[in-house]
Nucleic acid binder design. Structure first.
Lengths: 202, 202
DNA sequence: CGTGAGTTTGACCAGATGGTCAAATCAAGA
DNA sequence: TCTTGATTTGACCATCTGGTCAAACTCACG
């Protein structure tokens, strides 16, 4: 393992390649289903070389998850208490749906982890995620109190947004098996938009 | 392997025990993450004994999935073209939500499979599932044409029901990490009910 | 009972997998 | 160019895992 100095050009390149490869493999096969050889091959490195940059398979997985958590939560962070309630929520939804379209691997990486009980990120859920959600539901509740949007259970409102948007990334195969050649997102966006306009209108 | 006669009392008992154990293990760890030893232990059998009843790990998984597919699709089957549109859809939703509450392992079994690209049930999706959904969306479209419910993309309407209801089983850890002690379903049922009443009202 | 089919198991195997290590190779600054 | 730390690798190891097999045991029934 390299010293703890500033990372070399080569270190940067290889670490990035490993994380990129790991994202492919872990999101497609889950932690247990992924093999170090597979990740190494996809990153264009030999297995011992990969293990020179990360001490273990687990370490790669952890680095990947914690590195992506911020990206994953960014859309919700942007929800602004001072904006127009309906527009704020709808644009949050649009950002989430866009992430499902553009970052399906990231979505499935988390889905894999969550479905299996989140053994490796349970703490982040109870701390970071819960704090963020609590913060934003306060805003939602405020808007409801002011009559700006319909009164609903704020937590379930958020869950519904996650469920509806991530469904298209996580269960992509199923969606495509049913829609055939139709682009899932082409229909999803107006559908979800309509749904929340109707739901949130007081 | 036993003859292909009528199954013995012991055969019935052990096959059932194996499938029950396999449901626990596969739903919690995915196909690759589950081990035959684990399933055998949970079923109270030795590994060779388990493999006396099923020829392979794969065979157990397949038997489990195909055996549960009917159960899983039953609620949608019940959607009746002759019933009251709003009530038919809302009670379909209630049945699905109830399945999430009562059969979360089954939900996660399918979720695990789907997230990883459904390598083992892809065919069932494109055939059985697609046929069923096509059948039921015809009914939905009819209701829309008759002005009984709001006009929406029927496929996405179904996807939304799946997403919203199964979310509570599949991502149970996340939901509970955020809700704390609150019972997820206590809030989910009225929320989802309200959501679809508003959405479907023309 | 006795017997044959059904059931169970300890011992074993081959391949996969995560990980190690010493030796070889490479890169860049003095 | 030389030196030193960074990088890479072939060979290797222990463990896990799906699966096999022959021998032992149990059960139902004539």
């Amino acid at each position: 393992m390299p010293k703890d100095r500033a990372p070399t050009r080569i270190q940067k390149k290889n670490r990035a390649a490993i994380l990129e490869a790991a994202l492919n493999v872990f999101s497609a096969h889950g932690f247990r289903g992924a093999t170090v050889d597979q990740i190494a091959a996809e990153a264009g490195l030999s297995k011992p070389n990969l293990l020179y940059y990360f001490p273990s398979k687990e370490a790669i997985h952890t680095a990947l998850l914690s590195g992506l958590l911020d990206t994953w939560l960014a859309p919700l962070h942007e929800l602004d208490a001072d904006g127009d309630p309906m527009e704020e929520i709808l644009s949050y939804i649009r950002r989430k749906l866009q992430m499902s379209r553009e970052l399906p691997r990231e979505s499935r990486l988390f889905a894999n982890e969550l479905v299996q009980g989140a053994p490796r990120i349970h703490e982040a859920l109870s701390n970071d995620l819960k704090a963020l959600v609590d913060d934003k539901t306060t805003i939602l509740t405020q808007w409801m109190d002011e009559g700006k949007i319909a009164r609903l259970h704020p937590y379930h409102l958020i869950f519904s947004i996650w469920a509806l948007t991530q469904h298209y990334a996580d269960f992509d195969v199923q969606v495509r098996a049913i829609l055939g050649n139709e682009d899932p997102f082409a229909g999803a966006e107006p559908f979800i938009d309509t749904l929340y306009r109707k739901l949130l209108t007081p």
